[in-house]
């Protein structure tokens, strides 16, 4: 039975962790480029150089002595996000959606004392969320106002869009929809719904929730399939241009769609996860192999996007 399943996965071209590491990330990605994506502050600065839009930076806290100044730094902003510069997998991100009577309101509605904010910032600084517990920086940035088209299929938080990019060509994409279970976080292993996106048309496919295929969003009950993502071509272009930004050959680009500002680059991942295959009900391997063959002829961003649209639609 397991052997049959193995063969079925092989046939579908499902990429496993071992092969992703040995034949893609270790083979193509140069470790020298990793700091560009591991440090989100650096990513932000590089993105600005390439004119790629990112959420506006309100301030950076680099050492413990600055922690008390955080309230002053944020005094002009009603809502904001606190995140570690080196965090991974969405760990350590705190979203503040408003204030009342000197307290901060977290996105799930809980009110926080100013000291609780300071404690969280100190935890980030001492490296609680960074790889290898290295001392970290704290970014204070713009809270994305998500586009109302996603309202029917998300609960509280901001849905984000992950696009796998190989040699600057978008390969596969999904949208991660927060649920009550994931407490508003767009993290699949916390219980967010992942839904594939047809690269050619930019419309959503069926979703996957806790490793099960789902047709309706578990909280709102609305169908997931068939939602056209606004500004899809510019999303694809943003993802494709991240190749020039980082020089990382196999990467996952996380984008949010802001109501007013359009697509904003959130972060880039040098070892993107494999759940995207479940959300798309398709394997990455055949698409990656096709690009390995053809990427020599595709340098211009226009050609790369056209190649993706031509080859990686749902019929692929």
């Amino acid at each position: 039975m397991l052997i049959r399943r193995w063969k079925a996965l092989r046939k579908k071209g499902i990429l496993g962790i071992n092969r992703r590491n040995a034949e893609f990330t270790l083979r193509y990605n140069s470790r020298r480029q990793y700091p560009k994506v591991d440090d989100k502050l650096l990513t932000k600065q590089l993105a600005a150089d390439c004119a790629i839009p990112v959420p506006q930076l309100y301030g950076v806290i680099r050492m413990a002595g600055q922690v008390r100044r955080i309230h002053q730094m944020l005094s002009n902003y009603e809502d904001f996000v606190i995140k570690p510069a080196r965090g991974s997998g969405g760990e350590g991100i705190m979203v503040i959606s408003g204030r009342t009577q000197g307290l901060y309101r977290r996105s799930d509605g809980r009110l926080l004392e100013p000291e609780e904010i300071e404690h969280h910032v100190r935890n980030i600084l001492s490296g609680m969320y960074s790889l290898g517990a290295r001392p970290d920086k704290v970014l204070l940035e713009y809270r994305v106002q998500f586009n109302p088209v996603f309202e029917p299929i998300s609960y509280q938080g901001v849905p984000d869009i992950r696009i796998i990019v190989f040699f600057g060509i978008p390969v596969m994409s999904m949208i991660r929809l927060p649920t009550q279970m994931s407490s508003g976080k767009a993290n699949l292993h916390l219980g967010a719904v992942g839904a594939g996106i047809d690269i050619a048309t930019g419309t959503t496919l069926d979703g996957v929730w806790r490793n099960r295929a789902v047709i309706h969003h578990p909280d709102t009950g609305n169908p997931i399939r068939g939602l056209p993502i606004p500004e899809w071509p510019s999303l694809l272009e943003l993802a494709g241009r991240c190749y020039e930004l980082t020089g990382i050959i196999y990467q996952g680009v996380d984008i949010v769609l802001d109501q007013k500002l359009g697509p904003l680059l959130l972060e880039i991942n040098a070892r993107p996860g494999l759940n995207i295959q479940i959300a798309n009900n398709a394997g990455l391997l055949p698409r990656l192999r096709l690009i390995e063959e053809k990427h020599d002829e595709l340098h211009d961003i226009k050609n790369r996007l056209a190649f993706a649209v031509q080859h990686f639609g749902t019929t692929f």
Partner: peptide
């Protein structure tokens, strides 16, 4: 093999 069971 279990994680990707739905794909098989």
């Amino acid at each position: 093999l279990f994680r990707f069971a739905s794909l098989a």
